[in-house]
Design a protein around this nucleic acid. Structure first.
Length: 361
DNA sequence: AACGCATCCAACCGCATCTTG
DNA sequence: GCAAGATGCGGTTGGATGCGT
């Protein structure tokens, strides 16, 4: 048995409220209150409106002390901070901002604040990259390669358990200091939110032990405490993620469409991590073909890259100890990204690697 | 001036949760 | 404990408006 409609759909007025309707509703509620029954309210007043519509009109527009527009910088920060912490719980966010309604905040976020933050982040990133990254990355890759060829692939699953090789310098390209949210991790979380969340499958996958018996999750968990994990992902985001993946068989393929500059960054970051024996639950990206003479020679980059997952290891970084590869490695957390926004995802990928790197030192 | 496109935001819709009998 | 109705919430829609060409 289906639910009975809350009102007679055929006889209720829809669309914008007239000043007369507003006046009637306002006068009645100010004098009598809502009476605890919105459904019965329109009949009492003589309005041809659905009770839900009356409630919405009162809460979002007519009740006293409502503010519209003109969000301050401080309010922007509150909204962003809460969005990072609790997601799109607009009613909770609105409760922290007197005079603001959930609908108003939601509209403000969707139409302005989100774009403002994304625009700033991207603009800064691109400018910074244009100025300094090429030089730094060249140096970084050169250092990493020199170190890598000295590695012994027979060492333990962590690759460098006892004798840590010297570190090459990672470029510090993510500072985001003049965004309203000043700390990098907040921005990172925000970008994750903008892209999507872990699906339950993703999370489950992260909890699995790696095939080599090493507990890769310990590092993972330490570095990826996501305060949102306690909240189930919204169905729409999950669907969106799925839709995105349906049209992009793997993120790594998508990655190939981003800039060469980015591939360089990813490569450098991956190599650096492997040098440190950082054990992370990685998914191999779309890579180049295995080098000549490797036992994996003949495997196409795409088939290998898209099907392999696991920790950074001798196998994934050094191909039978033959030296560093110029492959691109992507993190499995990319599953979070729901929006086909290449640059944002690329930004986040490297930033994620960078965060892990920083987190371990 | 006219047209098309982008943006904004009030209002709607459907679903989940809460309340009541 | 259950069913029905009421309420609250968040995603989405579509009309109004602004802006560029």
């Amino acid at each position: 048995m289906g639910r009975a409609p809350c009102c007679d759909k055929a006889n209720v007025k829809k669309g914008p409220w007239s000043p007369e309707e507003d006046a009637k509703l306002k006068a009645y509620i100010e004098q009598h209150g809502t009476g605890g029954n919105w459904i019965a309210l329109p009949q009492k007043i003589g309005l041809k409106r659905c009770g839900k519509s009356c409630r919405l009109r009162w809460l979002n527009y007519l009740r006293p002390n409502i503010k519209h527009g003109g969000f301050s910088e401080e309010e922007d920060n509150v909204i962003c901070s809460l969005y990072i912490s609790i997601g799109s719980r607009w009613s909770i966010i609105a409760a922290q901002l007197p005079g603001r309604t959930d609908n108003d905040i939601k509209n403000y976020w969707n139409t302005r604040l989100k774009k403002k933050l994304l625009g700033k982040q991207r603009k800064e990133h691109q400018a910074r990259k244009a100025n300094s990254l090429k030089q730094e990355m060249k140096k970084c890759i050169a250092n990493s390669s020199n170190l890598m060829v000295t590695c012994n692939a027979t060492q333990n699953p962590n690759y460098y358990p006892d004798n840590q090789p010297p570190m090459a310098t990672m470029p510090s390209i993510y500072t985001n200091q003049d965004i309203a949210l000043n700390d990098q991790s907040s921005i990172r979380k925000l970008l994750i939110k903008l892209g999507g969340r872990f699906s339950s499958n993703d999370h489950h996958q992260q909890q699995q032990q790696s095939h080599d018996g090493f507990d890769h999750n310990s590092n993972y968990n330490n570095l990826h405490q996501n305060p949102l994990d306690n909240f189930p992902p919204p169905s729409s985001t999950t669907a969106s993620t799925q839709q995105f993946y349906d049209s992009n068989s793997s993120f790594s393929q998508l990655l190939m469409n981003t800039t060469d500059q980015y591939n360089l960054e990813m490569t450098a970051a991956s190599v650096q991590m492997s040098l440190q024996g950082i054990s992370s639950n990685f998914q191999m990206g779309y890579d180049m073909n295995p080098p000549e003479g490797s036992s994996l020679e003949g495997l196409e980059g795409s088939s290998y890259g898209c099907s392999t997952s696991g920790p950074i290891s001798a196998e994934s970084t050094n191909w039978d100890g033959m030296g560093p590869l110029a492959y691109t490695q992507t993190v499995s957390e990319f599953d979070r990204c729901a929006q086909p926004d290449h640059m944002l995802q690329a930004d986040y990928a490297f930033e994620e690697l960078h965060s892990r790197y920083i987190g371990l030192h």
